[in-house]
Amino acid sequence: MSTGTDGAPVVELGTPLVGGSTHRTAGQGTQGLAGTDLDRPERLAQVRSGELGSLHSWELVTAVDGPGTRLTVFLAGCPLRCLYCHNPDTLEMRRGTDVTADELLKKVARYRGVFRATGGGLTLSGGEPLMQPAFVARVLRGATEMGVHTTLDTSGFLGAAATDAMLDDLDLVLLDVKSGIPDTYTRVTGRELAPTLEFGRRLSDHGVAMWIRFVLVPDLTDARDNVEAVADYVSTLSTVARVEVLPFHQMGRDKWDELGMRYELGDTRPPTPELVERVRDQFRARGLEVH
């Protein structure tokens, strides 16, 4: 950003000015959503049926979790253990707050005017929302019935848990492809790459629109051939609307400390603008819309 003596601050677009603003930390709690307090067997039954979900937080956000202004709901619990996770407090389901699908759908209904005005909708994020597939299915069904645009933000690792009926209720999936080389993927996440690739192909075949996200971490995911592998894969999918290259940031670091968890990327710097551009160009070379 710069200013001349006679002009406005010139805003440079593309690269977030505040680190991680498009690869962001989860919201601040479930204020405004009534929690439940059931005994254990009853709770388990409701969780299985999808009547009850474990939520980390909600937020009304614009431009980051799909189009327009969206109610983004962060679900608690994730099977991956990404080294760079910026929301480690969403990793465990037990840290969430129990909220019923009906209660959440009431909130969705309340924001229909906001969604209409902004071209927004509902985004289920996490954590990994597909850890709670029955709850996700139920909420997506309810939102779709209201005519609300729906988005799922997922790593795809648990894609097998998404039924075709669930895919029918999805307008957009934000698919995190965290690396293109299987070994690198495992080093980053502690899990296998294959389920994600499989889920992406299924979404493509099913005609569900996707935004592909790739988190660029220096010395971890930035190798040229790792990026090439992701880009090659993405170029085989037919429903990808855009690719977002998200520069790594350190905004999640304090949370790791607070949770008493060991954080391995303490010395890692955010990628340089040149590196970000190199990676974006690798995707652009395949004719993809890249941000």
């Binding site: 593309g14 000015l17 603003s21």
Partner: peptide
């Protein structure tokens, strides 16, 4: 913040 509104000026 500018990036909080979208990726491109149009957005």
């Amino acid at each position: 913040t500018p990036s909080g509104l979208g990726r491109t000026k149009d957005e």
